[in-house]
C-alpha cells in the first residue's frame, strides 16, 4: 500500500538486530514466573519469560517498521509541518510554535549540507594522517576533535550568514507571515482516520474481553 518493498523494512531492522536480540534474551532468561522449563544458576527459561521476550521483540520490530514507513512515505518537512499544527494550541500560552517549526525546517534543510561538510573535513584530516575509527578508545575520541571543531566553526559561520540573509529578505518573526506550503485534507486522510479509529476500538474491545 505504501509502495515500499518488504526488504527495505528488513534493512531497517538489521543495524539494530544485536540490540533487539540482547534485550529479548535478557527478557527470556531473566524473567521469572509461570512454568519453569529449564534452569541453570541465575538463568531460567520460564513461560512468562518467553511471552515477555516475544512481546519485546514485536514491539521493537513494530517501532522500526512504523518509523521506516513514516520516514519513507513522508518528507521530513511534512513531519515538521505536522508538528507545528499539532503544537498549534500551545500558541495560546505564548509558545513560539512558528519559530520552532521554522528552526526545525531549516535544521532539516542543512542536514545534507552538514553531512557534505563532515565528509570534506574528514577527508582533509585523513590526508593529514588522522585515522578515524581505528585504534584505542582514547585515540578514537582524540581523532574526533579535529573533526568537531571545524564543524562547529563552519556551522557558526553559516548560521551567521543565514541570519543576515534572512533579515535582508525581510524576516522579522512569525507575525504576519503567509504560508507557501500548505496541506489539504483529502479523502484518503479521512479514510485513514476512520480505519485507525476502528482498529483502536477493536483492540480496546479485545483487551477487555
Amino acid at each position: 500500500m505504501s509502495g515500499v518493498s518488504f526488504s527495505f523494512f528488513l534493512k531497517g531492522v538489521r543495524p539494530l538486530i544485536w540490540l533487539i536480540l540482547f534485550t529479548v534474551l535478557l527478557q527470556v532468561f531473566f524473567s521469572r514466573g509461570g512454568t519453569v522449563y529449564w534452569q541453570f544458576g541465575p538463568l531460567s527459561l520460564t513461560s512468562s519469560g518467553v511471552i515477555n521476550g516475544s512481546y519485546v521483540f514485536c514491539r521493537f520490530v513494530l517501532i522500526i517498521f512504523m518509523s521506516t514507513l513514516l520516514t519513507l512515505t513522508t518528507a521530513p518537512l511534512e513531519i515538521a509541518d505536522a508538528m507545528e499544527s499539532l503544537m498549534g494550541p500551545l500558541k495560546k500560552i505564548k509558545v513560539p510554535v512558528y519559530e520552532i517549526s521554522l528552526m526545525l525546517s531549516i535544521a532539516l534543510r542543512f542536514v545534507p549540507t552538514l553531512m557534505d561538510e563532515t565528509e570534506k573535513i574528514m577527508n582533509a584530516q585523513r590526508s593529514r594522517g588522522v585515522n578515524f575509527g581505528e585504534g584505542s578508545i582514547v585515540q578514537q575520541i582524540k581523532s574526533v576533535i579535529p573533526l568537531l571543531i571545524p564543524l562547529f566553526v563552519s556551522s557558526f559561520n553559516r548560521a551567521e550568514d543565514l541570519a543576515t540573509a534572512m533579515e535582508a529578505r525581510g524576516y522579522r518573526g512569525g507575525e504576519g507571515r503567509t504560508k507557501y506550503r500548505v496541506h489539504f485534507w483529502r479523502l484518503n486522510d479521512t479514510l485513514a482516520c476512520v480505519v485507525f479509529a476502528f482498529l483502536t476500538v477493536i483492540l480496546l474491545g479485545l483487551r477487555n474481553w
Binding site: 570534506k120 573535513i121 582533509a124 571543531i149 571545524p150 566553526v153
Partner: peptide, 8 residues
C-alpha cells in the same frame, strides 16, 4: 578547496 576549513 577552501582548506581553511580544516584548521582546529
Amino acid at each position: 578547496q577552501f582548506p581553511e576549513a580544516q584548521l582546529f
